[in-house]
Design a protein around this nucleic acid. Structure first.
Lengths: 153, 153
DNA sequence: GTACTAAGTCGTAAAAATTACGATTAATGG
DNA sequence: CCATTAATCGTAATTTTTACGACTTAGTAC
């Protein structure tokens, strides 16, 4: 029953999030929880704008300010991540475990993937000397499987 | 004499750029050439805004529209690159040879580096299957040497 | 050189994305 | 339950990017 598993997973994420908020001194407001829940449920790395649209269904009075402010405080506290893109809209994800991104040139979709082989390799000495590295990530640009299928038709 | 070498280098870049423009069917306007020259001379991956400011000294009447439009046509024709960042302003570079970026959390500087070992390694099968990959890049997040020195004081 | 034509530019303004503000509301610790 | 203080709302300002029509210029052919 994959659906139930997913639900349980979300519940786990939510309680971990509540813990983390308390640890960071952030109040557990309804809006903050809902913003995080929405983001944690999304696999498409939504922008602030699209989160706003999705959340208005549940919370019709929520303001854009709340979305933007909440996203940036959560990012500051390292509870969510801002994703590197070339587009003008910033995009976010709740997935905090080490992973990498493939960005589709056509549909602008962002796909997560793992690459343990890369994670394990250490930087060449001359690169390591550039500074103190906290994070090492791969970004692939190309065309996703979905868009390739469409092209065939 | 490093300065002369740099100048020669720039001249080379400029004539290569002129060739490329002709090949792409782009007219060689004064503004377009100056925008490219400014970008090619910059190693700090400037934003449209800062290019605008720098160029106004030489071309006081240049408009923002021209900068933005030129940058996006040049990017379309693959003569320059838009850099992936998490900040709200897009940033650009003229450096087209394969390289990677270190982004400093403190000063937001973007530093180029080479990593041939990474460039040569091929993607794991399960990653390659995600789509047609055109580009594979590393992004390091951390603190640059310069900012580390400052901290010590 | 002159004239033609399409592309490019300028000045201005609109649109899109993000951030700010004061009044009000709600969460937390006691 | 109360007080304190962070967080939210509604609205508006700011910042970043894109668009529009009039005008200018580069490229080309004569």
């Amino acid at each position: 029953m994959p659906h139930i598993k997913k639900t349980k997973n979300l519940q786990k994420k939510m309680s971990a999030f509540e813990q983390a908020c308390r640890a960071a001194g952030l109040k557990l407001t309804h809006q903050r929880l809902e913003i995080y829940r929405e983001l944690a449920m999304s696999s498409d790395h939504p922008s602030a704008e699209s989160l706003y649209k999705r959340l208005k269904k549940k919370l019709p009075t929520i303001s854009q300010d709340t979305i933007y402010r909440t996203l940036s405080t959560l990012e500051e506290k390292k509870l969510i991540k801002k994703v590197q893109t070339v587009d003008s809209q910033a995009r976010f994800e709740a997935q905090m475990t080490q992973h990498h991104h493939l960005i589709c040139d056509k549909c602008k979709q962002i796909i997560n993937f793992q690459w343990k082989g890369f994670d394990d390799v250490s930087l060449p000495e001359e690169v390591a000397q550039l500074g103190q590295i906290h994070n090492k990530n791969v970004i692939l640009l190309g065309i996703c499987r979905e868009c390739l299928e469409k092209q065939k038709k």
